[in-house]
Nucleic acid binder design. Structure first.
Lengths: 342, 342
DNA sequence: CTGTTAGCGCGTTCAG
DNA sequence: CTGAACGCGCTAACAG
């Protein structure tokens, strides 16, 4: 490993002071004569000089890196969000430190600490920790954070929200508008605000139509990549075993809906002829199955972009968020819902 | 923003020197009396002291962060790899800096440079750059790198390989063993080593059985999330329009296979009754469609783990890779391939 | 316009 | 066992 050059080495070679080298190499607005400037540039180039950001960052107290903490990147929802975050970060010369919390509050706190220690300028987080003490603590110490997906009830954190409740309402009303009356809702454990909101939307839309809600909720949650799919299957079995067959099933997310469709097919029911299925998320894969899944679109990529932009704004102005963003759901009508009114 | 404390502040509070504080707070093996140690620990805790890694890293010349560069995280293949990398990194107290190159060589080089400047200890990369000058350059300067997925022909870089060719052979032989004779291969552009290898495997297995290869290759490549799916559909249309219908279609990856299945269904052909379909990758979605997709499994998560472990080994010993790893494909026989021998 | 100097926060000699 | 002093690579303040 060759010892790497510093500005002092370059300074010596160019027979100038290291300050001058620093000024030209870091594009300072400080005036330097054109001759020296080009000479230094040339020498630095020839010598393959590479700046050490650690030194620079230590001095300037600004690291040009932001942190992202999400449950797991293998969930397409989050990988899409991250892509959006990274795009904006890149355009502003920031880099992103990625952490998967696996919904483990302990791990989440550990990561927050580690990132703070590494002087990240800010954090984009989908927090799972119920006790946000750690986060709060670092915010007090100056950490900028914007929350995504999972609500963080704090004055100081910016929020990129999605109207889950409205999404739940829209999906349910859509089903109702197609003539469905017996509509079941199958869901992963209602232990997260977002899930509760979708459920609320479903319940209120049902009530408003004078219909009886039928809910099947999963028990324990695991982190296998196919958990939600298996969950959809299991919940459907439970649902089907439980008496009168619903004409439509609304699932808390697309992956679960795939499980519902799969189990339905397995038991000899056609979708949407025998039973209609509605998802939630709008992941690409929904259009690849047969029939294409009707669902509610969450603009994940856009959420990532917005979150990152908000964060950068906070960093630049040092201003607290004046306003939160609430992204709106959009109905994606495809072919998994039958029209019963015919 | 509260000004954060340094070891000097703690030193003052504890009425000791900053050296002593450093020694206890960084778990140095240097002897410090138990009384002082506990006193310092207590005070640091009470004062909510958080170390600044920049200072530490600048001094010790070791950053505890590694970089990962992959084409795009929204590809489930790569997100799974990253999860593996991150798991191992976490267990060794490293963090990962993530970069999506979007298969853009210019962007890739820019990222490599940025990471080197940030003093990452090493890099896990799926490189797309045909001209690896930049990478080579930094390796010469001491950067440790392990290549993944895409072969990097350099003595100094460790490689976690997957036997794509054998996978291609296995899939093709499987089809042949089920009595298929007219087997088409549909593929994204053959401009990457991995893709060429799968094709080679297919071609050689066909030849060995005295069968005629039928290949449909896509033209330009885009980066929409559904590119491969659409590609599978388009290639299938082309294939079907081109004369005699094959009894089996082998696709270069699972997503493409989904497109194949979808288009086949759309044109009224049943899978596997009319046409059999074989994928490549083994992504979770494969088991969620009807019929579940027969495919070749790539151990992505394991690839990530192995790559990271190799990298950490290189960092610890500073030793060059003595040996590369070649992961083996595994046939995942599900229900999208018909047995024609009955 | 250029150079000298003094830290940023930390770990590490080297004396005591 | 403890502390004073130096320097990692860089920028910013102040002189010249």
């Amino acid at each position: 490993m060759k010892k790497s050059l510093t500005i002092h080495d370059i300074a010596k070679m160019a027979e100038v002071s290291s300050a001058t080298v620093s000024r030209v190499l870091s594009n300072s607005s400080y005036p330097v004569s054109p001759e020296l400037r080009s000479k230094i540039l040339r020498i630095a180039k020839e010598a393959n000089y590479v700046p050490n950001m650690l030194g620079k960052q230590l001095k300037t107290k600004t690291s040009m890196t932001i942190g992202v903490i999400i449950p797991t990147i293998t969930n397409t929802f989050y990988s899409s969000v991250i892509l959006g975050v990274e795009e904006i970060a890149r355009k502003n010369n920031y880099q992103v430190l990625l952490c998967n919390s696996f919904q483990d509050p302990v791990l989440e706190d550990k990561y927050i600490q580690a990132m703070f220690e590494k002087q990240v300028r800010g954090l984009v987080i989908s927090s799972i920790s119920s006790d946000k003490k750690q986060l709060k603590h670092f915010i007090d110490m100056g950490l900028n954070v914007v929350a995504l997906d999972q609500k963080v009830e704090m004055e100081e954190v910016c929020q990129v929200d999605f109207d889950y409740r409205k999404g739940g309402v829209m999906a349910t009303r859509h089903l109702i508008s197609k003539g469905h009356k017996k509509i079941a809702y199958v869901t992963a454990p209602l232990d997260r605000p977002s899930r509760v909101s979708i459920y609320d939307g479903y319940a209120s839309a049902m009530k408003e139509a004078g219909l009886e809600p039928v809910v099947v909720e999963a028990g324990n949650e695991t982190y296998s990549g196919t958990y939600e799919f298996e969950n959809g299957k299991a919940l459907t079995r439970k649902l089907l075993a439980g008496g009168e067959r619903p004409s439509a099933v609304f699932a808390c997310n697309d992956m679960t809906a795939f499980g519902v469709v799969n189990e339905l097919n397995g038991q000899g029911f056609k979708v949407p002829d025998d039973v209609s299925v509605m998802g939630f998320d709008g992941i690409d894969f929904g259009q690849m199955i047969t029939p294409p899944l009707s669902t509610v679109l969450q603009p994940t990529y856009e959420m990532g972009r917005l979150a990152c932009n908000m964060l950068l704004d906070m960093l630049i102005d040092g201003k607290k968020p004046d306003i939160g963003i609430m992204l709106q759901p959009k109905l994606l009508e495809r072919e998994s819902v039958a029209d019963l009114r015919g």
